[in-house]
Amino acid sequence: MNREDIVKQAIQSLDLEISDLQVQQFIQYYEILVEWNSFMNLTGITEYEEVVIKHFVDSLLLVKAYDLSSVKSIMDLGTGAGFPGIPLKIMYPDIEFVLLDSLNKRIKFLNEVIKQLNLKKISAIHGRAEDYGRDKTYREKFDLCVSRAVANLSTLSEYCVPFVKKEGYFVPYKSGKIAEEVEAAKKAVLILGADIEKVVPLTLPNTDIERSFVIIHKEKETKKIYPRMAGKPSKEPLK
């Protein structure tokens, strides 16, 4: 199969319709990713079909756990090489996206992707969640916050929940056995003004790769003291 057919079939396995333009955007994204990865560490996965499944389809698997039809704005926190934000943006061009990462060189890469793919209503910003989470431009402004970042759920919730509007959602991408982690995070999530509604376990189509989405609903405003100062959420997770 050629590259077009591989990405088209992979996206369609999620029951999503994909246009020729979107197919080309995914291929172009892959090409920029591999080019930049040759001189900076963006991903350990570089083979085309693996990137399609483990980055593109994995990013889009969210649609099987959460309905994006009424979402107008998404924050992708700790976006890295743009996952899940860029694949979601390609498939949902009308949603406004902000991609946040603490490494400036990744932001330069993301800005190049945004420019070359001609994506609109999206910005990539450099900084720490603890700082932007207190910034009134971003605090409690998003319908949905997503993150594929590898961090303890209590810590990740303190980074992410402050960005979410009241009645919005935070949905982290998790892998492995997470029941204990979810149980341990319940109090932290409550302190932040939110509630863990459910966990949706899924498998990537045509693989045995498991992924769980934790559906966290924000019920009231987060107290102003959260997120705490830089480093605190990871060193001393809320309990």
Rank of each mutant, 00 (worst) to 15 (best):
S102L: 05
K54H: 07
Y159D: 07
R148I: 10
S38T: 04
Q24Y: 01
K136M: 15
L42E: 00
V23L: 00
K198P: 05
L62Q: 01
K235D: 15
K136I: 12
Y132Q: 04
K220D: 05
L100S: 10
V34K: 11
L68V: 13
K239E: 15
F163W: 06
L144N: 05
V57K: 05
P237A: 14
K120T: 09
V164N: 03
Y29R: 03
A179I: 04
S154G: 07
L103W: 05
D143R: 01
G168D: 09
V200Y: 01
F97C: 02
V71D: 06
L153S: 04
V146Q: 10
I114R: 05
Y226H: 07
K64Q: 02
Y159K: 11
P233D: 09
A151C: 10
S59P: 11
K121W: 06
D94K: 14
F83N: 10
E167V: 02
I86N: 03
S175W: 12
K141I: 10
S73I: 08
D135R: 02
A194Y: 12
Y66K: 06
L238T: 08
K105D: 04
L153A: 05
F109D: 08
I216M: 06
G133S: 00
L238K: 08
A151K: 09
G231S: 11
D5T: 12
I216W: 04
K120C: 03
K232P: 10
V71W: 01
K108C: 09
Q25D: 03
S154T: 13
K232L: 14
V189K: 09
G168S: 10
Q12R: 13
I196C: 03
A151Y: 11
K235N: 14
Y226S: 03
L110D: 01
V189S: 10
I11M: 08
D76W: 05
L153M: 12
I95W: 11
K187N: 12
N152G: 06
K8Y: 07
E47K: 15
S69A: 15
L77Q: 00
S13Y: 08
I125A: 07
S123R: 15
L60H: 07
R3V: 08
Q22F: 12
D15Q: 14
S73L: 04
A81K: 02
E4A: 03
V98R: 13
I27C: 02
V57A: 09
R139W: 00
D15M: 12
Q28V: 03
Y226D: 06
N104Y: 08
A151D: 09
E130N: 14
I27V: 05
L62W: 05
E130I: 13
L190T: 15
